[in-house]
């Protein structure tokens, strides 16, 4: 798996866990998980996948990623100053 494909795979795995809770609860829970545990760059990459290869995302994680995108791109701390 390429790096991007791996992120798709991980998002789909997360989606499968939360799917049991039903869409209404699952979508924000998946988005929250991505926000709490993925780096800004990983989140930015998965958001970008919506444009390039959204079909690789299952419906629930796709909606969760759309939610992330709608809430604004994550800050990219990689460009921040060195302390």
């Amino acid at each position: 798996m390429s790096h991007d494909e791996k992120l798709d795979y991980m998002a789909n795995q997360i989606g499968k866990f939360f799917a049991a809770q039903g869409e209404e609860r699952a979508v924000p829970a998946i988005a929250e998980h991505l926000r709490k545990f993925w780096t800004p760059r990983m989140r930015a990459t998965i958001v970008a996948r919506l444009q390039s290869d959204a079909a690789r995302l299952d419906p629930l994680p796709r909606r969760a990623v759309e939610r992330l995108a709608a809430q604004g791109a994550a800050p990219d701390s990689a460009t921040a100053a060195v302390p």
Binding site: H3, K36, W38, T39, R41, M42, P75, S77, P83
Partner: peptide, 23 residues
């Protein structure tokens, strides 16, 4: 005495992925 990052960092497998990706 330092400002700290508020976003989560890389896990070990993510570090290795990012290394392979050159970042």
């Amino acid at each position: 005495g330092r400002t700290l990052e508020q976003e989560p960092g890389l896990r070990i497998p993510n570090m290795l992925d990012e290394a392979v990706g050159g970042r």
